[in-house]
Design a protein around this nucleic acid. Structure first.
Lengths: 217, 217
DNA sequence: TCATCTTCTGACCGTGCGGTCAAAAGATGG
DNA sequence: CCATCTTTTGACCGCACGGTCAGAAGATGA
């Protein structure tokens, strides 16, 4: 890894490329470190080491540890809200809800660090994302709740509490990232398998669709 | 608060009582601090201050910050496993599952700090509770899964995946502690109300019972 | 009352942290 | 090639943290 870096440095590279690559490396390393050790438990040195750079170089691109954390959080929030799109009142909940569960679970599997950082942030009082919660995320939330209400009005699902339904969807899907370690230990696995995720999809869609009185066909 | 402590010190009190009270104060303060700021984000001084004692006094009762954290974790794990009792194969899932959901939600409401500390611990790789996960908790887990299997065998519920059902129960109930802040913001509340918890009970029991094909009567 | 416990506390210490700086090394554009 | 950018780096700083210690204060039991 170090050799690769050294080699890369020997060849002439344009500044823009260097900058982009370094920033990417740093953010990637930071995401891992923050997910594993939390904000306070992470040191700038450890991020620098994981990124293959000296510490002052990291501080050169991001003025402070907090600045770097905020940058990481921003990326995560965008990712987080993406999955909530594509729930529309015109679609039938039978396919829409299943699709939502699949996407959310895939996110938990593919980007567990993002989920963990977000969870820890909320857990500890959301000191850095309060505004985003109250602004964009609340709008997304209200919109999605409205879609559920529309489905209920159309008789496509039973009159369940839409807010808590969404909370439950989030909690049960995100836990496959946040609590993956616990699941692995209790299932006696080294890693969660594709089968585990398929089982999760099946169980969750079943609970939600049957539980909300949506015909499963 | 300080005045109260001073006054208490003036009156003669037996050592055993002093010891017990101080330890209780410290553990209580530590639980709050660890839940709010995580292990690394918590300082011994802040715990001491919250407990109304000088820092060395805290270290006098608990040799180290880690020792104090372990003591707090131990209490939490016991609490955590308590709620899993009282699921028996002879009981009908209709009442048993509802009772379980109610207990778990009550725990999230009454002891949110415990839940948060546990969640953060798992999130960050369970460095201090790995053994407990692999030992006592896994046994509890296997027993509970066996109860679900027994219910399925008796035809009292559909053949759903019992492991993932339990994961979902945990995730959705615990999130009312771990993500309470997010819920408050999105619901536009200052605090979660009794009604909110009633709605959660209703929705969760509905999803689980209907979803698993248990007659709700 | 007195000897001997336990509890309490101010002062202190070493370490590791986030962050700075100045100067070297490299890239750029004419 | 050269003047002027940006990037890289070792050395350094102040500070807050976890933890120690010696001795004061208080409790105990005979």
């Amino acid at each position: 890894m170090i050799e690769k870096k050294k080699a890369a440095k020997r060849t002439r590279r344009p500044l823009t490329e260097i900058r982009q690559e370094n920033i990417d490396q740093i953010v990637k390393a930071a995401e891992k470190q923050f997910a594993d050790n939390g904000f306070s438990g992470t040191t700038v040195s450890s991020i620098a080491e994981a990124a293959g750079l000296p510490k002052p170089n990291v501080l050169y691109y991001f003025k402070s540890k907090e600045g770097l954390y905020r940058a990481v959080l921003k990326r995560i929030l965008e990712l987080w809200m993406e999955a909530m799109h594509d729930l529309h009142a015109e679609d039938h909940p039978r396919e829409a809800l299943r699709g939502y569960i699949v996407r959310k679970l895939r996110q938990s599997r593919d980007f567990p660090d993002a989920s963990k950082i977000f969870a820890a942030e909320i857990l500890h009082g959301a000191p850095y994302v309060r505004e985003e919660l109250e602004g964009p995320l609340k709008r997304q939330f209200d919109d999605t709740v409205a879609v559920f209400r529309a489905w209920i009005a159309k008789g496509w699902m039973d009159p369940v509490n839409p807010e808590h339904l969404l909370f439950t969807l989030w909690a049960s899907t995100q836990s496959y990232a946040d609590f993956a370690l616990q699941m692995k230990v209790l299932l006696g696995r080294e890693e969660l398998t594709d089968d585990d995720f398929d089982n999760a999809i099946e169980l969750l869609t079943r609970l939600v669709l049957k539980g909300c009185g949506v015909k499963m066909v």
